[in-house]
Design a protein around this nucleic acid. Structure first.
Lengths: 191, 191
DNA sequence: TAGCTTTCTTACCATAGGTCAATTTTAGGC
DNA sequence: GCCTAAAATTGACCTATGGTAAGAAAGCTA
């Protein structure tokens, strides 16, 4: 929990009452590798702040193939925001790729922080802007880069994640098969 | 301008002073087809609310190919938010696909609305959340759907846009070539 | 450390979509 | 309405990536 507090404090003066509020609505929970925190088709009420370990969110298509939307490590949030925002059942699954510690919030309760402590509004607005920008970039990359280029970029952007992830997790994030990724790795090794 | 005011009012009580502020920092401008409102490599200061016509934002890759990030018609905002948020030069180009009317804002001035009229904070937060969700969906679609499926979905989501756009605009949005799109259209017509 | 189980690699073939170069169609400008 | 330029289509061929299946390697667990 200190991690989250610290992170917020880098960009916002956090009143003691707000800090207390955060504590009051959160729970720190340890999960082991493979545990599923959100399952496709179920109600989504929670959102998670990762303090250690590595998680991912992914969907499963009609052919049973998985497609990774997000990897989350230290200091990232993860949930199924599509479901939360639209008040629908989960289309995503969120699972632990390693033993992980997360701080769990009820998403609606957490949202209440904006009315209780309005200074969070602009903090959150900035977070969302940042997120929008990174998604814009990801879409443009997907449109213009080859699989190899996308993999190179991935390694730059997530230098640590490879330690935690299986090859097919990365492949499903890049939009290719694990076999293709394997071939790309071989080519890269040759150089 | 009334369009924007009306749009805001559907989700926010708009104080007269706020409405006045919006008027004071905006300019309604007509542009003709082909005009470029933001050009790659230049400073980005403006953001645009579209009241009529159709615009798009796109980037150009190393091979000179265009990749469309967004089409904007009635009641949409368009700009290069990557550049604005990071305070960088534009990587995107924004052009009019038809004669268009936009309301032009200085992005920083418009941002000031949040400090002057704090009720805009949560309004904008919701807008951004909605935007994030739609980008999540677009990424998942790009990962799991074939070109034909993506085109079908595009036609559903933007039923009117085809009247304004060239085939290669749509192709560059879907991440395929115009020739491929042409073949997909032929196949669809057969059925 | 032996024995599973999971993951990764490899080889071969298949295919969606890309490239290039005509050719046809469409749409503005005069 | 005619003429030209832009856009769309088409065909022949090519390439990146996918599919399948088998074997190799790595990781657990007892």
């Amino acid at each position: 929990m200190e991690d989250l507090i610290k992170k917020i404090k880098t960009r916002l003066h956090l009143r003691p009452e707000a800090e207390e509020f955060l504590y009051s609505i959160s729970k720190e929970i340890k999960h082991s590798k493979g545990e599923v925190l959100i399952r496709e088709g179920q109600m989504v009420k929670k959102t998670f702040f990762v303090t250690s370990g590595c998680l991912r969110s992914f969907c499963i298509d009609n052919n049973g193939k998985e497609h990774t939307l997000l990897f989350a490590i230290n200091d990232w949030w993860i949930s199924d925001y599509i479901a939360i925002h639209n008040n629908e059942l989960a289309t995503l699954t969120v699972e632990c790729l390693t033993d992980s510690t997360v701080i769990e919030f009820n998403a609606k309760e957490l949202d209440g922080i904006h009315t209780r402590f309005p200074e969070f509004e602009s903090y959150q607005r900035l977070n969302l802007e940042r997120h929008v920008v990174s998604l814009h970039k990801r879409i443009l990359n997907q449109l213009q880069l080859s699989a190899t280029e996308r993999y190179d970029l991935f390694l730059k952007q997530y230098p640590d994640i490879e330690r935690h992830t299986r090859n097919y997790h990365i492949a499903s994030f890049l939009g290719i098969t694990q076999e293709s990724l394997s071939r790309i790795r071989v080519e890269k090794a040759k150089k």
